[in-house]
Every structure is written in C-alpha cells, then in structure tokens.
C-alpha cells in the first residue's frame, strides 16, 4: 500500500518536472513568434519603448496590417510562394518515387554506386551549388523566372533517400504480387508503393513545403523581378525599400507569411501523427 503511495507521489513529482521542462522549452521556441505578433500590433512609438509589455497600450494592428498588405505586394509574394512550393513538391514526388523504387526494389549493375551518389548529394549543402546553378541557369536563359526558382529542387536527394528507405521496408512479395496481377513498373510505384508509403510522403511534403516557403538564399540569387519573389525575399526587399525602420508593418507582414504554414500544420497535425505511427506496427 505504502509502496503504491510513494510510487504515485514520485510519478506525480516526475510529471510536474516533465511538464515544467516541456513548458519551458515550448516557451523558448514560441517567444520570438509571440514577440513578432506583439510588435505587429504596436505603434512605432511603442516598439522602441524601454518598458516591456506584450500587449500594446494603443492597438495599432489594423494600421500595421493594412500597411503590410497595401504598401508591399504581399498577396503577390504569397501566390508566388504557393506556385513555387506546390510545383516543387509535385515534381519532387514525381521524380523521387520512381528513383527510390529503382534503388530499393530493382536489381541492376551500378545500383549501389548510384545510391552512394544520392548520399553524396544529401551531404552537399545547397549553398555550395548556388554558383554553378546560377551559371547554368544563366546559360539556359531561365534566370528571373519561376523555372529558375524551381529547377534546382526538382531532384531531391533527401526525398529519394527517404522514399528508398521506406520502400525497402515493404516486402518484395508485394511487388511480385503486383507484377503477377499485371501492373507495370510505374503502376507499381504509383498505385501500390506510394500509397503504402503515405506517412513518408506526408513527412517529406512537410519538410519540402516548409523548407522552400522559407527559403531566402536561392531566390535572392535567382530572381530580381518583384512579381516573382517568394515571401521571405519579398519581405526583405520590403524592409529595405519601403519600411526602413518601420518594424510594425514588417512584423505584420512576417506574421502573415508564417500564418499559412501554421494553419496547414495544425489542421494536418492529427492526420500527420496518425500517419507516422499507423503503419509502424505490424497488426
């Protein structure tokens, strides 16, 4: 009896400690975001005030957000981001899934060498390739177009690696059965393996969309035209040209840009977590 009592007390103590640590880490991660939102609803005078408060004494949100939406072509940036990210994602999956299938399930000479090359690609930071890609893009004459923003990312070593590892876990018999059932190799990829690898596809999609929505480095090199700029680059230009030290509208614009990702993740969260664990255990 006393044993269970002490275990209970101990476990509740541990739970308090656990939650304290989690809350603290969560707060640390959230703080910049909260600060961003707080700044986005403050008037200019209040932003640089010495005293600290999250809530403004004078609500200036409407003005800041109006300014963000009107003075910079923010909707245009967001549409650009949507076009670029979705095209990149679709093309990446179109390229990566068949590649991963070949590396995971087909036997051909040179396969292991190809896989090593994928791993090397995985190790290279994208910045290293920026200059060659820029020159290449220039020679193709595609700089300052959507194509320039998309083409370096169409082949994703990470995607190939992730899908290949997932396909490896699928029993060869499933592929054999599909061949006997009359499916072509591509049909096996799209109708059998990709649906079975849905958790991996979702995880990859999140990485890809977040990564390219937030990407600043390559767009900075590849496009100059404001009408082609994805959100972060637009914000940077907006900061330089329009806002100056006007942080209120800048933070409002930043908030608006992060918002779609947050909403998308929160709505997909339940499904995403289910997807990640659903196929993990053999039923």
């Amino acid at each position: 009896m006393s044993d269970t009592m002490s275990t209970k007390r101990l476990s509740s103590l541990a739970a308090i400690l656990r939650h304290a640590v989690l809350l603290l880490t969560g707060a640390l991660i959230l703080l910049p975001f909260v600060w961003m939102i707080s700044l986005s609803i403050k008037p200019p005078g209040e932003i640089f005030r010495a005293s600290f408060s999250f809530w403004p004494s004078q609500f200036y949100g409407v003005e800041n957000y109006t300014k963000a939406l009107t003075e910079a072509p923010l909707p245009r940036y967001m549409i650009n981001g949507l076009i670029v990210c979705s095209l990149i994602l679709v093309l990446q999956i179109l390229v990566c899934a068949p590649c991963a299938y070949a590396l995971a399930k087909l036997r051909f000479p040179g396969r292991d060498l190809l896989f090593v090359m994928v791993l090397v690609g995985l190790l290279l930071p994208h910045q290293v390739l920026a200059l060659p890609l820029f020159v290449f893009g220039y020679q193709l004459g595609i700089l300052n177009t959507y194509t320039a923003l998309i083409f370096p990312y169409v082949v994703s070593p990470f995607g190939i690696f992730l899908f290949r590892q997932f396909f490896k876990t699928i029993h060869d018999d499933v592929v054999h059965a599909a061949r006997l059932d009359g499916l072509s190799e591509l049909a096996i990829v799209w109708r059998i393996l990709v649906p079975m690898a849905l958790p991996a596809v979702i995880a990859f999609s999140i990485f890809s969309v977040v990564g390219h929505w937030n990407d600043l480095f390559w767009p900075l090199i590849a496009v100059r035209d404001q009408s082609l700029m994805p959100p972060p680059l637009g914000i940077m230009v907006f900061k330089n040209e329009e806002a100056g030290n006007d942080f209120g509208p800048l933070m409002a614009a930043s908030t608006l840009i992060v918002l779609p990702l947050v909403i998308a993740f929160l709505t997909a969260q339940k499904w995403f977590v289910e997807g990640m664990t659903g196929g993990a255990v053999k039923q």
Partner: peptide, 20 residues
C-alpha cells in the same frame, strides 16, 4: 515473358496483400 503474360497466379507466404 513478363509474369503477367504467363497466365500464372501466385499465393505468397506473407500474403502480399495491398494494405491500402
């Protein structure tokens, strides 16, 4: 000849059903 052209059907140890 490819498997589908051979007019054979196979049952596997692992059943190899399509789970989705």
């Amino acid at each position: 000849l490819r498997p589908k052209r051979r007019d054979v059907a196979m049952v596997f140890q692992s059943y190899a059903l399509y789970p989705h």
